[in-house]
C-alpha cells in the first residue's frame, strides 16, 4: 500500500517538478492551483498532527478540485520538513504544516537551526491543542491551588513529568516556576504514554499533557484535571479553570498549528491560500472532525499569524533564556 503510494508520489513529484521547471517564472494567482498540491508534514504518519494535516488537506482538495499529496518528513524538531519546504517553489503548490516548535527552535537549538522566519511565507494559523494539568485519582490534591500551595510547603519534593524539551508542556511549567519561584523537579519523557505510566503508577506527581492524549484517562476517571493552559476553558471540560483565571494573568501554553509556504510567494497566491485555509475551518464537517480529534479551532489570517509567530518567539525564547535551557 505504502510502497505503491510512495512510488506514485515520487513519480508525481518528479513529473510535477519537471512541469514547474519547464514553465517556471510566470507564476500568478490565475495559474494556481496548477495540478496536484503537496503538504509537507513535520510529524510521522498516523499521529494527531498528521490527522490534522490530512483532514485540512482533504477539505482543500475538495475546495480547489485538485488532488493533495502528503509527505511526512518527521524529525529534528521539524527542521527536516522546514528545509524541504524552503527549497520548494513558491508557486502555492507546496505548503507545510508547522507547530509551536517553529518559533522555539532558533533559541533552543541555535547551532542546528538553519532557518529564519523570513525563509517562509505565513499563510494562516488553524488550530490549537490545550494542555491539561492532571494528577492521578488517588492524589489528595483537588484543585490547582492546592497543588501550588503544597509545592510551596514542600520545596524540591514534587515531580513533574515533562514530555520533550522546548515543548509548551515543558516551557509552560518553566514559566510557572519562574513567576512563582516554585521548586519542583522536572522528569523528562520522550512521549506522553510513557509519562502516564509513572503518573498513574504514582511515581510522578503531576503533568500538563495535551488534551487529546489525556482525554481517555480523564473521561475514565483515572486522571483528575486541575487546570487547563489555554486562554479559555475547554468546551468539554467546563468545570476546569484556566491557569490565567487562577491569578496568573495572561498565562497561556498551548500547542498551535498553522501553515506556511516558501518565501517569495506572490501576495495573490498567499491570499488565496489563506482564504482557502480559513474557509476550510469554517466548514462544519471539517471543524467537527477536528474537534473530535481534540483540536480547538484557532484561526488567524496571514498578517495576524505573522505577528503571532513573532510574539510566540519572543515569549518562549525569553523563558528559554531565563531558565538557561538552550542546547547545541
Amino acid at each position: 500500500m505504502k510502497t505503491i503510494r510512495t512510488i506514485t508520489l515520487a513519480a508525481v513529484s518528479v513529473v510535477a517538478g519537471l512541469t514547474v521547471a519547464a514553465m517556471s517564472p510566470p507564476v500568478n494567482a490565475a495559474s494556481f492551483p496548477n495540478g496536484p498540491m503537496r503538504i509537507i508534514i513535520p510529524f510521522g504518519a498516523g499521529g494527531t498532527s498528521d490527522i490534522l494535516a490530512r483532514t485540512v488537506g482533504d477539505a482543500i482538495s475538495r475546495k480547489l478540485g485538485v488532488p493533495v499529496n502528503y509527505e511526512n518528513r518527521r524529525g529534528a524538531h521539524s527542521t527536516i520538513a522546514l528545509r524541504a519546504l524552503s527549497e520548494s517553489a513558491p508557486d502555492g503548490q507546496t505548503i507545510g504544516l508547522i507547530a509551536t516548535s517553529y518559533t522555539v527552535n532558533a533559541c533552543m537549538y541555535p547551532k542546528t537551526t538553519h532557518y529564519t522566519f523570513s525563509d517562509f511565507t505565513p499563510l494562516a494559523r488553524v488550530t490549537a491543542v490545550p494542555n491539561v494539568c492532571v494528577v492521578r485519582k488517588e492524589s489528595k490534591l483537588k484543585t490547582f491551588k492546592d497543588l501550588l500551595a503544597d509545592i510551596k510547603k514542600n520545596p524540591g519534593k514534587y515531580n513533574y513529568a515533562s514530555t520533550g524539551k522546548g515543548t509548551p508542556a515543558h516551557l509552560g511549567v518553566e514559566l510557572l516556576k519562574g513567576i512563582d519561584k516554585l521548586d519542583f523537579k522536572l522528569v523528562m519523557y520522550k512521549d506522553t504514554p510513557s509519562a502516564f505510566i509513572d503518573i498513574l503508577g504514582g511515581r510522578v506527581d503531576f503533568m500538563c499533557a495535551t488534551y487529546p492524549t489525556a482525554r481517555a484517562q480523564i473521561a475514565g476517571g483515572a486522571l483528575r484535571p486541575l487546570a487547563v493552559t489555554s486562554p479559555e476553558r475547554v468546551e468539554s471540560l467546563p468545570d476546569v479553570p484556566t491557569i490565567a483565571e487562577l491569578g496568573y494573568k495572561d498565562f497561556e501554553a498551548t500547542v498551535w498549528y498553522g501553515f506556511l509556504g516558501p518565501k517569495g510567494m506572490s501576495p495573490e497566491i498567499q491570499k488565496k491560500l489563506q482564504d482557502v485555509l480559513l474557509g476550510v475551518l469554517s466548514d462544519k464537517k471539517t471543524s467537527e472532525k477536528l474537534k473530535k480529534a481534540g483540536y480547538t479551532i484557532y484561526p488567524a489570517p496571514a498578517a495576524q499569524f505573522s505577528k503571532f509567530i513573532e510574539a510566540s518567539n519572543k515569549k518562549w525564547c525569553g523563558i528559554v533564556k531565563d531558565a538557561g535551557l538552550a542546547k547545541n
Binding site: G44, A45, G46, G47, T48, I51, P193, F196, I197, L200, P212, R215, A216, Q217, A219, G220, A222, K289, K292, A293, G294
Partner: peptide
C-alpha cells in the same frame, strides 16, 4: 488507554477519531 508501541499508538489515534476513548 496507554498505547504500548508505535503501531498501537496509531490504533489509539483511530479509536479517538471514532469517539471511543480507550481506557
Amino acid at each position: 488507554g496507554i498505547p504500548p508501541g508505535p503501531t498501537l499508538a496509531v490504533l489509539f489515534g483511530a479509536m479517538v477519531m471514532f469517539g471511543i476513548t480507550p481506557g
